[in-house]
Design a binder for these strands. Structure first.
Lengths: 255, 255
DNA sequence: GCTTGTGAAACAATTCACAGCA
DNA sequence: TGCTGTGAATTGTTTCACAAGC
């Protein structure tokens, strides 16, 4: 959730047209359903109830049904959903019927790991190019792909029909890379650099920041600790700063 | 968004007690504000307006002000927020006044990268232990830390006061690792394995799935393509399956 | 005059609960 | 009888717009 602009639904021109314009929250869950469905399919299930799929995906069944209803999906009352059919539908909606080519820029620590991550290949993506600005990295081969200089991006984008750009550079380089990606026509960017990118209307950016995830957990950890720290003590504490960390107990691990 | 259970606000016992119980959406944004604030501080700003900070953090200013108001934060009308003070407040709320110890389980491709990621150290965390189940990895040194066997978790957790567990194992191993983490008292888990973890009440799990992020981008890419593909054609297309991919045009890169 | 803090309005997402169908 | 699909109720989030304060 962050930089997303939606072109505004085209005012109902007649018969329901192209993609059903799903709620963003639903879109974010479809991939998880898809994963769960593949798992079920591998286990030999041909059909699954909303309850069963919801469990496998870690959501509740009402939400799942509402999500699927947005796809206009057809389950069978009294029976459930056809696993194979649902997989096809979700893959279609997510635009995964074609294998998308991804360009990864920044082959440092994290970039290296991403370049070698099988999860991409197995879930509809093809890392089509590795790029970096550091001359000492050019030519290195990772997982069968040779690292090329980021200036070759225009050529690479054209040759490989790059659909999505992934930025795994240090923060100071990220905006320039984003600009270059946009310049060659990339309209979807996944950004691992801890910074805000500014991009023109119509370009989608998603951000993954590993430290942020930890900080969110830290908040909950902190909160749980403060709650158990005061069994029923009504007053006494001034937990917001001024005098920082007055009662910042060391969060008991265990009970 | 996913597996989170909240103990339910303790019904106002008297004076406002411990942590202000922020909306989850706000919590998720605080780390971003914090990053932006540090950036501003480094650039020499002592004070910043909601507008300025909002820009740096990539949100709009009304949202930012509402978020900060939940902290009970004190800006100065007509002036803005004191950068240093706000940093302290947010760090306090996020529980970052103590440096938290993180145990990383799974030192494969991704785990390696995480072990070497500076972003953790620089933002309040300390990777205190690297663990793996694969005997051939035990003893390897990464970034000054020796990989230990996951069975040593109980000892490690006690020695290092582990606050957060990070799972970077393959999916099939993840649940077992989660169970072990929970058993030694870890109540916050960051899961990189593409699967749903089941954990007892009171344990927070956040999931990062790199392929899912790409799939969400793929959806938008697909959607943008279908929109531009029909300049104003009212009918003709049956974009939902049955006959899959009927009009799944190759998404024009560029204009 | 400029900027915060915040009620009130608008919007979005989730959950409930049940009618409708196989 | 069992399970989906969905209106209606609820809860949560964002945005607006302006009064209050420096």
């Amino acid at each position: 959730m962050s930089q997303h602009r939606h072109p505004g639904a085209p005012g109902r021109t007649g018969a329901v047209p192209a993609p059903p314009d799903l709620p963003e929250a639903t879109v974010a869950r479809l991939p998880e359903y898809l994963r769960a469905l593949h798992q079920l399919a591998d286990a030999g299930h041909e059909t699954v109830s909303s309850e069963g799929l919801a469990n496998a995906a870690g959501v509740n069944s009402a939400k799942l049904r509402k999500d699927l209803s947005h796809l206009g999906s057809y389950g069978t009352r009294g029976v459930g959903y056809d696993v194979g059919l649902l997989i096809d539908q979700i893959e279609f909606v997510l635009g995964l019927t074609q294998r998308r080519a991804v360009a990864l820029v920044g082959v440092g620590n994290l970039g290296h790991a991403l370049a070698g991550y099988d999860g991409f290949a197995s879930r509809g993506f093809r890392i089509a190019a590795l790029l970096d600005a550091d001359p000492s990295r050019i030519g290195e081969e990772i997982n069968g792909l040779v690292v090329r200089h980021v200036d070759e991006l225009p050529r690479v984008a054209a040759e490989e029909s790059i659909s999505i750009g992934v930025i795994a550079t240090p923060a100071p380089a990220a905006q320039a890379v984003a600009d270059q990606l946009v310049a060659v026509g990339v309209t979807s960017i996944l950004n691992f650099a801890p910074c805000v990118l500014s991009v023109p209307e119509g370009v989608d950016v998603r951000k993954v920041d590993l430290a942020i995830e930890l900080q969110i957990l830290s908040f909950h950890e902190h909160r749980k600790a403060s709650l158990t720290a005061l069994p029923a003590t009504g007053g006494t504490l001034t937990p917001l700063p001024g005098g920082l960390a007055a009662t910042d107990t060391q969060e008991a691990i265990g009970t």
